[in-house]
């Protein structure tokens, strides 16, 4: 896997940037939560590119944000269950 550089990122479209960042985020998120890694990575990719880069550089920040994503997911699932109960 080629190293992620600023020049590589700026030469890519916003969509390609997210793809490149997602490829790097995913294995790290898998370490934190293997079961929900696809969804957590999806949530984290909604952040700005600069914030995602911070997450890639800081395992602590990544863990914090991943935990927040799990909380969001759980809230969303509760909401869906209550909607489906009607």
């Amino acid at each position: 896997q080629e190293p992620l550089t600023i020049s590589l990122l700026v030469s890519a479209s916003p969509h390609e940037q997210k793809q490149m960042l997602g490829v790097r985020l995913f294995p790290l998120v898998q370490i934190i939560d293997k079961k929900l890694a696809e969804k957590i990575t999806g949530i984290l990719l909604e952040f700005d590119t600069s914030e995602i880069i911070y997450m890639l550089e800081s395992p602590e920040l990544l863990r914090t944000m991943a935990n927040k994503a799990v909380t969001l997911l759980q809230g969303h699932q509760v909401q869906e269950v209550s909607m489906n109960s009607f």
Binding site: H15, V23, F26, E38, T41, L45, E80
Partner: peptide, 26 residues
């Protein structure tokens, strides 16, 4: 507001092109 939020969150799968938040309300 059109019920598409049920598709949230978009899932990232390695090797699959990222589609992001298409047609999903914030």
């Amino acid at each position: 507001s059109n019920g598409s939020s049920i598709n949230w969150p978009p899932e990232f799968h390695p090797g699959v092109p990222w589609k992001g938040l298409q047609n999903i309300d914030p």
